[in-house]
């Protein structure tokens, strides 16, 4: 799982880097100013709390408390679903305001990046429900809690990817928009001795 997560770091890193490189290059349509920070802050908090529910599920299973493990597994999946709901609302709002993947560079890079993240969350939700039901037929028990720990690693990874996207793309992006990204570019260029 750690090897897979390492490869996924490169996958999401590429998407985030592409978004950062093309930020400020869109010549038409909505850009960073369309981002709704208060709503996304709530969805970020929901995803963080789903990570807490995930470790509590694992902790319960490792202590042999099946009821606790089931409760927190279901809570994790439900909180993940709430996050997906927020993302669908956000995408619908963007579409209403004229931002789609075909509108401009911001739309392409932002929606592909967050869309792939949402897909990862959706896969995680299916995985969690499969583990939840497997606790009832004895396939998941205290003795093979590693199954849940591996799913937990995946879930926490999805969480940390969102921590980066929320911090770097939403907050820094919407705060500074083009001006500060350009400053950051010049600072980075100075570090590398370019220009």
């Amino acid at each position: 799982m750690w090897a897979f997560l390492g490869s996924d770091v490169l996958f999401f890193g590429t998407l985030i880097a592409t978004h950062l490189v093309y930020r400020g290059q869109s010549v038409s349509g909505p850009t960073e100013n369309i981002l709704d920070i208060p709503i996304t802050s709530i969805s970020t908090f929901v995803l963080l709390m789903s990570s807490l529910a995930m470790v509590l599920a694992l902790s319960g299973l490792q202590r042999g408390k099946m009821g606790e493990a089931r409760f927190w597994l279901a809570a994790t999946a439900l909180l993940g679903s709430v996050f997906i709901g927020f993302q669908m609302y956000e995408f619908a709002e963007f579409a209403n305001e004229g931002l789609t993947p075909r509108t401009n560079l911001f739309g392409s890079t932002f929606l592909i990046m967050t869309g792939f993240h949402g897909t990862h969350v959706a896969i995680g939700i299916l995985w969690l429900w499969s583990l939840f039901f497997a606790t009832f037929n004895g396939k998941i028990h205290q003795g093979n809690s590693l199954e849940v720990e591996i799913a937990g690693l995946y879930w926490h990874f999805v969480d940390i990817v969102w921590i980066v996207i929320f911090g770097v793309v939403y907050l820094v992006g919407a705060y500074g928009a083009e001006e500060h990204v350009e400053e950051a570019g010049h600072a980075a260029a100075a570090i590398f001795g370019i220009g």
């Binding site: 390492g6 490869s7 490169l10 890193g13 570019g185 010049h186 980075a188 260029a189 570090i191 370019i194």
Partner: peptide
Amino acid sequence: LFFAPMIVMVSIAVALLALFQNITR
């Protein structure tokens, strides 16, 4: 396994940002 690709990716992102911001200026 986790941090090695992370370091590679952050380095690439910083380098790309430096290059492209420089070119477009």
